[in-house]
């Protein structure tokens, strides 16, 4: 396993594994961003802060 050519430095994950971990991060960020956007819109509707 140790000299698996797929492994990328420095984590020792293979490329597919690294991409999967990355996809969770991206998904989480997207969901978080959309939620934040909706929350801001709703607050702006009830207490407008942009005049």
């Amino acid at each position: 396993m140790s000299n698996d050519p797929d492994k990328v430095w420095p984590t020792g994950l293979t490329l597919r594994e690294a991409e999967e971990v990355h996809s969770y991060l991206i998904d989480g960020t997207r969901v978080f961003g959309v939620i934040a956007l909706i929350a801001h819109l709703l607050v702006a509707v009830s207490t407008p802060w942009l005049g």
Binding site: G28, V34, I35, A36, A39, V45, S46
Partner: peptide
């Protein structure tokens, strides 16, 4: 967990509106 979190995060403002 993300969905649960997201729902709770917008819920109070949604209810107020």
């Amino acid at each position: 967990t993300m969905l649960q979190f997201g729902g709770f995060a917008i819920m109070p403002f949604a209810l107020l509106v």
